[in-house]
Design a protein around this nucleic acid. Structure first.
Lengths: 129, 129
DNA sequence: ACGTTTTGTGAAACACGGCTAACTTTTAGG
DNA sequence: CCTAAAAGTTAGCCGTGTTTCACAAAACGT
């Protein structure tokens, strides 16, 4: 089953939160994404059944497969946020809007775009985003 | 009621088709977007009740309000498709993916991005897209 | 160790945006 | 004209992703 935009967002947030705080619980994801814990619970069940995450008693973590997606999303997030900020968009708005742009492109198109714009990760947002 | 991504797509397609052929019928929109005529019928009812389109007996046309949105979407479409094509993405893929990117940014952010990348419409796709 | 608070889950509902199928209305050919 | 095809509408369904509300389970302070 293919990953949807919302699934990618959940994976990305687990990735970011795990770098920030180590162990990630559902409630952390809910707060980070601004959804209810029930939504996270349901989403995690789906992601687990598709092999993207594993759920312990009180934590969630990415599988190899989930990590790959999460890293890719985060990389794109950084790219688009950086691009928008360089264009003069506020950090807050850039972060919000970059969140949507990161799901629009195929891997191939993204790489081509990044190559052309020559933003090879040097200006990635900090982990505190 | 705020316009969703799909609503913007409908408006944009009416705009493009009206330039191409003058009068636009629901069936034309359905074919252009690859959805059923039932879907178009439903969407038009919503768009009409929100003042974006007006429906005659056998045609649909944009109101002032709808036209403004449609033009803006088309402008962004051209921008993103051109950008991706310049990056080496095929016309077909660029058109598909640009279709999604055009809904991600606020007016303000888009203008800033366009200003920075200096693509002031010179390389807009042709109307036959 | 007990009770309270925090966290997670389950059921039911909703909005959205698609679909099919059946129907009506309009158009157009013979 | 009259009928057949094309276009439009309506009703009902589905999948996705939310929500709220009630409840279960775990963690924690005293």
């Amino acid at each position: 089953m293919a990953l949807r935009e919302s699934g990618e967002d959940y994976l990305e947030s687990i990735y970011v939160l795990s770098k920030r705080q180590g162990i990630v619980r559902s409630i952390d994801v809910a707060e980070y994404l601004g959804v209810t814990k029930a939504s996270v619970s349901k989403a995690m069940a789906t992601l687990e059944s598709n092999g993207y995450v594993e759920m312990g008693k009180r934590d969630v973590h990415l599988t190899e497969r989930g990590l790959e997606v999460a890293r890719q999303m985060w990389e794109r997030h950084c790219f688009f946020v950086g691009l928008l900020e360089d264009a003069g968009v506020s950090a807050e708005v850039a972060s919000q809007e970059g969140c949507h742009m990161e799901h629009c492109l195929s891997e191939e198109s993204f790489e081509k775009l990044r190559a052309m714009l020559g933003r090879d990760g040097a200006s990635a947002p900090t982990m505190t985003d």
